[in-house]
Structure formats: structure tokens, C-alpha cells
């Protein structure tokens, strides 16, 4: 494994939107799920989080989208120490982060259009100000003819794209995706990858947790490889990865 070029001590902290300093995490009294993670993600970067099941990929994302707290170490988001951020500030930090959940978490009683618009409504935007944007976004992700559909009537790939649309509709600074190609076929996986690359090209920092080594290899993007809760490699995909 190569030296970690993204380690916090080797990176300009001002440029980092995410910075882990010796961060560990545990659920309750269980053993640590993540151990002594130190890295940072520069603004506009694109990384995959890889590793076997149980390595801590989802937990890592949870720390970043503030669904969990470190048991040790310092986590900085947008240059702010999360542990010291007042509780009433956290919702505003979350609004800068788009998340594609592994299990989608779509609201079944709301149409695809309504689901996609949730982050904008929460941010207090008026319907007139975003209805056209949401329609265009859904068209962009290939759901032009499914805007009225309720999530239970959508196919797996459609749900996936709707979850992505919801994650990016608020133009987040960071996009996190947990196994975004886990429920779709290879072709759809590639389409979703192109979508993420396009968002990244527009300036969004992207972090994707995945088992799909072929997707990682095709993208040519760097990885954070976790094993047993430890960051064992961060950087370009090593030779033989996915093979």
C-alpha cells in the first residue's frame, strides 16, 4: 500500500471539505467499527470507499452525514469541528450534504416529483422557485415519464435514480452514495457512474461506498480502502484491484 497522500497532516486543511483526525467510532458498547481514521477530502474530489462487508464503509458515510458521532478524534466538515458545532447548526451542515442511501429511504406516499423536492422544501424554498428545476432534474435522470409515480410502483433502477435526484437537487457541496449500484444491472451502474462523474465535474465532492470493484476500476478514481474498520489504503486504485 502506498503512503497516504490525503492524510490530514499532508493536506492543506483549508481546501478540505471533510477531514478526519484520528477518528474512531463505535455503536454503543460494541467494539470500534472504525479505528483511527485520518484523511481529508479536498473540495471537488471524487473517491470510492471500498472494502469487504463489515469493513465500516457505511459507518464512515454516517459520520460524514452526521447520523453518527465519533467516539474518538476530530471530524471537520467544511472547516468546522462537528463536535463543537451547536445542535441547531447541524441541520444546516446536513443541507450541504446529499446522501443516496443504500435502502433509498423514499417516502412511499409521495410522488417521485415530491420525493425529489424534499430537500428544497426543507430548506424553505417556495414551490414556484424550484418546480421547473426538479422537473428538469428528473428528466435528466431518466424519470421524465415517472414523475407522478409513487415509489412502490417504481423499478429498482428508477428508485435508485430518484434517490440520486433527491440527493443532488439541492446542489450539495458533498454527495455521498452508499452502494448506489447495488440494485441495478451493469448497464444502469455505468449510467449512474456517468451521472456522478458529471456532478463531480460541476464541482461536487463525491464519495461513493461500493463493493463494485469493476465500477471502481472503470472510473479511474482514487479509493479509500477499509479493512476491519481501518483505512489501509487511500489513493489511486492499486494494480490488480478488482481482478
Amino acid at each position: 500500500m502506498s503512503r497516504n497522500p490525503y492524510a490530514a497532516d499532508a493536506t492543506d486543511a483549508d481546501d478540505a471539505v471533510v477531514r478526519f483526525d484520528d477518528v474512531s467510532m463505535r455503536y454503543g458498547r460494541a467494539p470500534e467499527t472504525l479505528r483511527d481514521l485520518t484523511f481529508s477530502l479536498p473540495q471537488g474530489s471524487f473517491h470510492f470507499v471500498t472494502g469487504p462487508s463489515g469493513a465500516g464503509k457505511t459507518s464512515l458515510l454516517k459520520l460524514i452525514y452526521l447520523a453518527a458521532q465519533p467516539s474518538k478524534g476530530l471530524l471537520h466538515l467544511f472547516g468546522q469541528n462537528v463536535a463543537q458545532a451547536p445542535l441547531d447548526v447541524r441541520p444546516f451542515l446536513r443541507r450541504r450534504i446529499g446522501v443516496v442511501f443504500q435502502e433509498f429511504r423514499l417516502l412511499d406516499h409521495m410522488s417521485a416529483f415530491d420525493n425529489a423536492a424534499v430537500p428544497l422544501r426543507i430548506a424553505g424554498a417556495k414551490p414556484d422557485s424550484y418546480r421547473q428545476d426538479v422537473a428538469e432534474l428528473l428528466t435528466w435522470v431518466g424519470l421524465k415519464d415517472r414523475m407522478h409515480a409513487l415509489p412502490p410502483t417504481l423499478a429498482g433502477g428508477e428508485k435508485q435514480r430518484l434517490a440520486i435526484a433527491r440527493a443532488v437537487v439541492g446542489r450539495p457541496d458533498i454527495l455521498l452514495a452508499d452502494e448506489p449500484t447495488g440494485n441495478v444491472d451493469h448497464e444502469m451502474g455505468l449510467r449512474i457512474l456517468r451521472l456522478f462523474l458529471e456532478l463531480n465535474r460541476l464541482g461536487t465532492t463525491v464519495l461513493i461506498a461500493t463493493h463494485d470493484q469493476d465500477l471502481v476500476a472503470r472510473s479511474g478514481k482514487p479509493i479509500l480502502h477499509l479493512e476491519d474498520g481501518r483505512l489501509v489504503h487511500m489513493g489511486p486504485v492499486p494494480q490488480g484491484f478488482g481482478g
Partner: peptide, 18 residues
């Protein structure tokens, strides 16, 4: 744009099921 769904006539649904 879908002929069935017209964003211009869209009204936000409640966050909780009616």
C-alpha cells in the same frame, strides 16, 4: 414533459400521509 404530470400544476404533498 409527461402529459400526465404537469409541474406547473404541481402542489407539494404533505410530508406525512393524509
Amino acid at each position: 414533459m409527461s402529459v400526465i404530470f404537469d409541474p406547473a400544476r404541481w402542489r407539494p404533498a404533505a410530508f406525512l400521509p393524509e
